[in-house]
Each structure stands twice: as structure tokens, then as C-alpha cells.
Simulated scan of single mutants.
Amino acid sequence: MTQPTAPIIFDGHNDLLFQLYTAGGLSAAPGFLTGLPGAIDVPSAKAGGFGGGFFAVYVPSHTNLDEKLAEMSKPQYRLPLPEPISWEAAMPVVMTQAAILFELERLGGLKICRTVVDIRAALDAGIMAAIFHMEGAEAIDPDLHTLDVLYQAGLRSLGPVWSRNTIFAEGVPFCFPSTPDIGGGLTGAGVQLVKRCNELGIMLDLSHMNEAGFWDVARHSDAPLVATHSNAHAIAPHSRNLTDAQLDAIRGSDGMVGLNFAVAFLRDDGQMQADVPIAQMLRHLDYLLEKLGEDRVGLGSDYDGAMVPQELTRISALPMLRAAMEQHGYGDALIAKLCHENWLRVLEKTWGA
């Protein structure tokens, strides 16, 4: 039986821009149209019914990935936060990755969307819809001038931190087993960042914030609380996952959580091992639906930025996830909400259009 490529999937997080940045920058962009070695490209999107999502601009830390993988394959681990990155060091990386995103649009591979009307039009036209997102605010200056300029360039979603500290907040380290209650929350500059994002209509992504920062945003923001790529701490007790209290707050704000495909945040044992069945993803979805309701859960894959279940390593394999949802007993209306409708709902509430 042919597996379904509809409803279209609009996804809460990917790191394609970073992958292209490391593969040669602008010179690597044309491969997006014909085929790339990673998870996301245009041919795979057509095969998998992938309509687009949040395209993250990410400034990397100087981390030994082999050592990180080895550590996260142990029964317990507590990785230290990487060192902060200065504005001067972050800006060239952010500008280059943003330029790659603009080049993908110029080549006709996607459409950068600034409103939900833009997203719906792109999906209807069969063009990949892209939200310009920043994962970590290292390139934002204390006076927020860079934020205003990036907004004019199309920035519509921002994580104040990746898992390292910025001048705005503290990140949550990768720890298992652990709660996210590690470190301090927003700084004074962070409160001002939250308020300015609210004024502009930039969505705030809480996925990499520790618990103190989460509650500070909840106090100071007037927008729905959103974690684009996080899972249920009750199932996988990882520092990156959301506690029941956090899920209750997200529900109370009429916010949103995108299911993270990263295996360490799916597995009960927190290990970075790819032999994770789709059934484990459905356990998290079931729990998130129970806690948040069917209008506040979606997908936040972390494709091209994390190890994902071995059955779903490319977006061309997404029909397997849709089929598993159907076999699990999710109806057509719920599957459509999980695949894209809930993201459009929360973006309309946040952006206002």
C-alpha cells in the first residue's frame, strides 16, 4: 500500500542552513534543488510531502562532536555549557547563513514567509515555505538594533539561547537524567528582548531555555509560549525536555510544542542511539496531546541538526510517520493538525496575520 504524502508537513525546526554553511556556503546552495547528502532538499520534499517549516540560523560552538556523541551514549551524562560567543564572532556566521536562505529563495527552491498568508500561498502553490528563525541570539546587540534590522530582512522566530549562555539568558545543558531546572533565567537585557519581540511579532522559541528562563518568559511575554522542538520530560527525563508544569503553562497560554525527533530526547534512557521505533515518538505525541490538547502539538524534527530515528533519516521517509499515526488511531482531522494546521494557528496568534 502506498504511504500517504498528505496532509503536507510544516515542521518546527531544521538546521539545513548550517549544513549548507559547513558544506561551502553559497556554492553549496544549488544542491538543494537536485539533491543533498543530508535530510532536506527539494526532491526529498516532493517525495515525502514536506511543505517547509522553521529554517534555523545557528552559530556553532567549538565542540568535538565525536566526544559529545560518545558522552551522550552513556547511561548518565552532564555536558558542560559551551563558552559564550561574542557578537563580533556571531555576526559573520549569521549573515552568511541568512544569505544562504535568500539564495535558496532566489534559486526558486523555497519562499521566505513573513505572514501566515505567505505560508498558505506557498503550500498551495507547492513551494517550500520557510520561516527565517535564529537559534540563539548571539548576533543581537544589547540595544536590539540588529533585531530590528533582521526583522526587516524577514526574521520571524528567535530562540534567545541555544544550549549556551548569551547576554539575554542562560541555556540548558545536555544532561541525563536531569530536570531543566539548571541555572538562572533572563537577564535585564533578556526582558527587553522579550518585550521587543512581542512588539514586532517575532515568535520566541523556548526549546533551549532552562526552566528559570522559561518561567521568566512566561511572566514577561504576552504571546503564546512555544517550544519548537522539545519532548515530554515525563517519558524521557532529559534536561532538554518539558516538565508537566511547563506543559501546563504552554497550554494556558494557548501555545505550542513541536515533537523533536532527536533520539536522545525521545528515548527513556536518554542515549544518542538511532534504534528508536516510531512507536516511541507516538508515546510522546500521545502524552503531549493529553497535556496540551489536540490544537497545540505539532512536529519539530531537528532534521540536519540531530541524530533522528533510523527509519526517518530523510524527509522522503515522512510518509511512514503519517501512516504510523493513522494506524495508531489518529483521525484525519488530528493528523492534519499535527502535520501543519497547529503551527499555522499559533503563528497567526503570534504574528497577527
Rank of each mutant, 00 (worst) to 15 (best):
F132C: 08
I250G: 05
G52N: 04
E326H: 14
G188I: 13
E71K: 11
V94L: 09
G258I: 13
P75I: 12
L312W: 02
H133W: 06
K74F: 09
S230Y: 09
T228R: 02
E290Q: 13
L186Q: 01
Q192C: 15
A23F: 03
S44C: 14
F132N: 02
G35V: 13
V226G: 00
G298E: 03
L186M: 08
D11I: 12
I85R: 01
L247M: 14
Q97S: 10
L321V: 05
A47G: 00
S230C: 13
A29Q: 02
N198V: 10
R267C: 13
H145W: 12
D216C: 08
N342R: 07
I8H: 00
L206G: 00
G255Y: 03
P84N: 09
I9A: 00
G184Y: 07
W87L: 15
E83P: 08
W351A: 07
G293S: 08
R156K: 11
A89L: 13
R296D: 06
A218V: 12
G352C: 13
K46F: 12
G252V: 01
A23V: 04
K74Y: 09
S316L: 09
L33V: 10
D268I: 11
I315R: 00
Y287Q: 06
A139C: 07
G252C: 11
E138A: 13
Y303D: 01
Y58I: 05
M281S: 11
G270C: 10
I40G: 00
G31N: 02
I278P: 02
L266I: 14
A98W: 14
P60G: 06
G329T: 08
R196K: 14
F10R: 00
V149E: 12
A212F: 10
N64Y: 06
V94S: 01
A39W: 02
V194G: 00
K337M: 04
G24F: 03
C339D: 05
F132H: 09
H133F: 09
T63C: 07
H229D: 11
R219S: 10
